[in-house]
Design a protein around this nucleic acid. Structure first.
Lengths: 193, 193
DNA sequence: AGTCGGGAGTAGACAGTGTCTACGGGATGA
DNA sequence: TCATCCCGTAGACACTGTCTACTCCCGACT
């Protein structure tokens, strides 16, 4: 049984977790609270998720899939130039992180990623691949993977530091767009906006 | 009584916390475990830190002070040019984050920063000020605060994503230096390395 | 048709956590 | 000498994640 099952308790637990993390944040994702909201006893999840972090990982995987879908849709809908696509992709990424802070925090919780026992790192690879592709077409002379990595890190850093107010305090900006523009200009060059 | 007191229980709890987070990571910073290692009962910390996160914030403040000291020392010792100073500063920042992952994670735990009830955001301001100064001298035509913010976010993102392996997996790089160079070149221009 | 087996969820125990409150005890000052 | 107050203790409480024993029910096999 995989995550795509929509009938059983396994999928219901993930659904409840997604709602819960969206509504109340990552710290609300207690094993017992998820079970409570799913209408089962606190021992029931154990049959499908041997441990708490496995359930959390399954919920985070939903977040990665969601982000991935939005990114793919955005890249397809945006204009044809790689630069405008990259801009749209970056905006979607930041928008996701800032509009769903709980899910974003869960997705990048280090204790879910550090050992990678659950293979959560690989969930970022598809989006990174499109990032590498677009970056390579904007700046063909550079090492696309390194450049894409630096850009991804920049987006991630902006998302985090802006999300909890540090960047707003430090830069005095009102919203995150100047930072986003600065990052894109820095890594891709300022031309043709 | 402030954090600079080195005699009483308050300072001892912070010391123990720093050792503990360095040795065993951020998840080991249990209130009761800190009290145990300090040789007091689990209720004792409450007299100095009304809540657990206040103790954690005090420990994180030590981390910020430590990073701040290293940064200041590095900037002073490095060459005279702002570009080389920025390179040295960035290396120190990344080195700190990667050599002390537990402390770095604690410092940027969102639940310590989000409400800023404990004023933890402001601890980053001194280092950010020197960053703004150096960036402004390298690229006087740009908005130094925005540019410095974007660069800080880039360093932070590299530190996090590299720290838990995502960037290593995605870029295939062996260490973080190419990413660091890419970030510095992007934000400051590639000249005079 | 009857029985057996095993998947699925329940319920309770256990150690551990953060917080709260009542209590001691010892030094200091009147 | 005695009262005060600071500092730390000890236990309770609700909550957490994990483990284990138990029940129930449905489906398959004889």
């Amino acid at each position: 049984m995989s995550d795509t099952d929509t009938t059983g308790l396994r999928a219901r637990l993930i659904d409840v977790g997604v709602e819960l993390v969206t509504a109340e944040g990552a710290q609300a994702l207690t094993l017992r609270e998820i079970a409570r909201r799913a209408g089962v006893s606190h021992g029931a999840p154990r049959r499908y998720f041997p441990t708490h972090v496995e359930l959390l990982s399954a919920i985070a995987r939903r977040g990665f899939a969601d982000l991935q879908d939005r990114a793919a849709k955005t890249v397809a809908d945006a204009g044809t130039g790689p630069r405008v696509r990259l801009t749209a992709l970056a905006e979607v990424y930041l928008g996701f992180a800032l509009s769903q802070p709980g899910m974003y925090e869960l997705m990048f919780r280090h204790d879910l990623l550090e050992s990678n026992r659950l293979g959560l790192r690989e969930t970022s690879l598809p989006m990174f691949a499109t990032l590498v592709d677009l970056v390579g077409r904007v700046r063909p002379e550079a090492d696309a993977r390194i450049l894409a990595g630096a850009l991804w890190a920049n987006l991630h850093g902006i998302a985090q530091l802006w999300g909890w107010g540090s960047l707003k305090l430090a830069t005095g900006a009102d919203d995150h767009t100047p930072l986003l523009i600065a990052a894109l200009d820095a890594h891709l060059g300022p031309e043709e906006r």
